[in-house]
Each structure stands twice: as structure tokens, then as C-alpha cells.
Simulated assay, not measured.
Amino acid sequence: MNFTALNNFLLIPNVCDRYADGSRALGIFANETVTVGLGLHKHRKKKLHNVLIGCSQINEGTVHAFDGVMGLGYSKHSFAVRVAEEFGYVFSYCLVDHLSPSNFANYLSFGRKSEVSKLHNMQYTKLILGVINPFYAVNVAGISIGGTMLKIPSEVWDIEGRGGVIIDSGTSLTALTELAYKPVIAALDPHLKNFQKLGIDIEELNYCFNATGFKESLVPKLAFHFADGAQFVPPVKSYIIDADDGVRCLGFTPIKWPGNSIIGNIMQQNHFWEFDLVGKKLGFAPSSCTMLKSKV
């Protein structure tokens, strides 16, 4: 996205934005007018007024490693919500494999895309807004591995209680509360018994192994089952991830119970995701992320 900011400052000091993985940025907001380019038409532009742009002074966690962060959360301060309201309250993105060549690119689009009809197996599930602010929550009913539903207490998925699940593009790993994490690891472990476990922790990856001779076909399919019947079946490489040369790790990290589980951006890779903020639904489908390239 290309945008130009025009000076129209309304400074709000000492604003803190915290992410689902605990990362945070502390700084000031500036109320700006930004100019965005429309799609692939280089000369078509639109001005958007009263857009909050943050200038961080302190960065902690994963945000420390980047030049900037675009807020996609559901709040009045979110860049995504402000821009989406100009284009039908819909935005979408597609994330390529994190190990893809440099000429492959993720993309973010605002507005409903007619090309969505070309995607196969597009599914929709309810998008729950305003309950776990500013995150996008979904109604997960369970997780299956190899077609067998795991024995995970229903309270883990209860968004009105002490659990619930959010889908978060700003968190890399998929985080599961202990009541879900342990059954998932236990179900995958027998399929990896022939590979030497490594006594290392790579960032927050706790289960790593020597991947010599490993084939993805050895691992059964994992699926997230939504309460309304939709199923998200990520590719194996999204949950058995390359962590280093000759090293694979289970792409899950445990978090304390009670708490909210997180479907992170590595798990979301190679899928198209559409957030309909008015219809309150989340659409998703497998994608190479090379089709729907027009952007705002």
C-alpha cells in the first residue's frame, strides 16, 4: 500500500498498544490525512481524513525487530477499520509461506474482491467482534488430528467464559492454552517417534527434532473445527515448521489457562482470509497468494 501523510496533528501522548503475544509499543498518536493509491491504477488516489498514525518511542517484544506495524485490530484506532469503512467494511489478506523466495509477497486489500469467486473451497464462519477487544474472535468447537477429535474440554473454546480463540495476523506462532496444547502435542508425538528430539528451545518452540528423512506425509492432517461446521485444514508445513537447517519444530506454544488461544500467522499461511466487519463473518480458502494481487 502506498500512502502519503499530510500534517494535521492532534498529539495524544503516551499511548500503549499491546499485542496478543505480549509485545507492545509505547509512543504518541498523530491525527493525519493519508492518501492511498487505488488498486493497480497508479494515478487513482483517495484521501482519508482522521487516520491515527503512531510514532513509537519504546518497543518491546517482536515489534522491536521491525520498522513499523500496521494496526489491523478491531478498534476506532485501527488503520484497518478506518480504511475498511471507506471500502465496504471488508478487508482481506493472503500470507505466503515464510520460507518462500523473496520475489513472493504477502498482500493486504481493502474492499470486497470480485476475484474471490475464483477461489475453490471458500468457507465462512462467524466473526465475533467486540468481545475480546481489539481482537477478532472465532467460535472453535475442537481440533482433530487424522480425523479424530481430541479430548479438549469445551471450556477451552468458550468465548463467553474463560477461554475462546482469536485469529491474529500479528502473532507468529499458534498459542494454545495448556488444556489444548498437551493433547495436540500428545497426538502428534507418536508420528515423530523415529526422529531424534533435540534439547533446544528456538524462540518459543518447545518441541524440536532432527528432520533428517522427514516427510510431511508422515504426519496426519490437523483441522480446526468451527461451531458452525466450517473446517480450517492448514498444510502440514504450517504446524511442523522449518526452524533451522535440518531442524523441524511443532509450531505451537503453550499459554496458561485460563486464557485465549491464538491462531497465529504461520498457521494462516497459504490461505486467503477475508474479514467482513458488517456481515460479521470470516471467509477463508487455500490459496497460493498469487491470484488476488490488486490492492488499495
Rank of each mutant, 00 (worst) to 15 (best):
M1N: 14
F3K: 01
N7K: 15
I12W: 05
D17V: 11
D17W: 14
Y19F: 13
A20I: 01
G22T: 02
S23D: 11
R24Q: 13
L26H: 10
I28D: 15
F29T: 13
T33C: 07
V34F: 10
T35A: 07
L40D: 14
L40N: 14
H43A: 13
R44Y: 10
K45A: 12
K46N: 06
K46Y: 13
L48Y: 11
N50G: 12
L52A: 12
L52H: 13
C55T: 12
C55P: 04
G61N: 07
T62C: 09
T62N: 15
V63I: 11
V63E: 08
D67Y: 05
G68F: 05
M70P: 00
G73P: 03
S78Q: 04
V83T: 09
E85D: 13
E86Q: 12
G88D: 02
V90H: 06
F91I: 06
C94I: 02
L95R: 06
V96E: 09
V96R: 09
V96A: 03
S100Y: 07
S100C: 06
Y107S: 14
S109W: 01
S109F: 06
F110K: 03
R112V: 08
L119H: 02
L119A: 08
H120T: 14
N121R: 10
Q123S: 09
G130K: 00
P134Y: 02
F135N: 05
F135A: 11
F135L: 10
N139E: 15
V140G: 03
V140M: 09
G146T: 03
K151L: 13
S154V: 10
V156D: 07
E160I: 04
G163I: 05
I167Q: 10
I167V: 15
D168Y: 00
S169C: 07
L176E: 04
L176H: 04
L176T: 07
E178M: 12
E178I: 15
Y181W: 11
K182Q: 11
K182R: 15
I185T: 01
A187N: 08
D189G: 00
P190D: 08
K193M: 09
L198F: 00
G199Y: 00
D201K: 15
D201F: 04
I202D: 05
L205M: 11
A211V: 05
A211H: 01
T212R: 11
F214N: 10
F214C: 02
F214H: 01
E216Q: 08
S217Q: 05
L218R: 08
P220R: 08
L222Y: 06
A223R: 07
H225G: 10
H225Y: 06
F226I: 07
A227R: 15
A227M: 13
V233S: 06
I240R: 02
A243M: 00
G246V: 03
V247H: 04
V247I: 13
G251R: 01
T253W: 01
I255N: 10
I255H: 08
G259K: 00
G259E: 01
I266T: 13
M267L: 12
Q269A: 13
F275S: 02
K280T: 14
A285T: 04
C289F: 09
T290I: 02
L292P: 04
V296F: 14
